[in-house]
Amino acid sequence: MTNIIAASDGTAVGGRTVRAAPVARARKRLSWAWLGVVPFFAFLLLFLIVPAISVFQQALHNNDGSFGFDAMKAAVQGQNLDAFWFSVRFSAGASAVGVIIGTLLAYAAVTAKRPKWLRSLVTSFSGVAANLGGLPLAFAFITLLGRQGVLTKILSYFGYNLYAGDFQLGQVSGLITVYAYFNIPLMVLITLPAIDGLKASWREAAANLGGSSFTYWRRVGIPVLMPSLLGGFLLLFANSFSAFATAKVMTDNSKIVSLRLGFFLGGDINVGQDAIGYALAAWMVIIMGVCMGFYWMLRKRAERWQT
């Protein structure tokens, strides 16, 4: 009996030997298939990994030039620590603004039914705005909010001095404002698929069970969106933390870590402290690595409700 069944569908008893063959063949093919990705990894090694490792190799020096952690320690002390703290603060702020407004904007675009083109307008514009800029963006904000900027002038006409407090394009408030220009559209792009993933039937189910709109958001909507929101926060944080040129054009503030690093590389700070400059870069890589690592984990979770 069993033999007949085994013969008819080719699985049971005899199946083991039959199945063993393709596995062996696949393994044999696999052993050579990796050669196809060698050029790619070689390229990556040469132009990304080697420079990255040499940064760490330069950073791991003691004051006397021997191997050690002196420079790494010095890079997170005194002024350097202030710089890291400043950068973390404004990056977290810029990222939070991006997450909140970006999510609201994405939600507004998805739920607004009336002009049918609204959604594609918002997505298209986000795609463009997230990619606009570089230097031009910084200059655009200087013309709007700089000391001679148009909005500054308009506000002062109405008796409000924008610069009376500690507002400056190179300070926390200014950097948050400018970085919002690319963080908001970025968040729209990141969070749109997640908002699309919220199914109408969930809301109906919640209503059916007597839940209010608030309950729906607290118990269903927000928890489902949470991985996307947190992932977006990390990505925007990493983005703001490592942005260079916008800040470079707007300010000389050496409290911004990426600018400080730029000064080291440009030779504005004396050569004896070279190792500390590279240690700044090394710390930056470490911080980015942590952010991107967590982002990667959250992304996998966020994908569960999508498609």
């Binding site: 990304l48 080697v50 420079p51 990255a52 490792i53 040499s54 940064v55 190799q57 330069q58 490592s242 260079f244 990426s258 690093l261 730029g262 080291f264 590389l265 400059g277 590279y278 870069a281 090394a282 930056m284 890589v285 980015m288 690595g289 991107m292």
Partner: peptide, 13 residues
């Protein structure tokens, strides 16, 4: 993870 400003530090090395 290795942003442009850190990559360029490596290139300088």
């Amino acid at each position: 993870v290795i942003p442009a400003i850190a990559l360029v530090a490596g290139i300088v090395v």
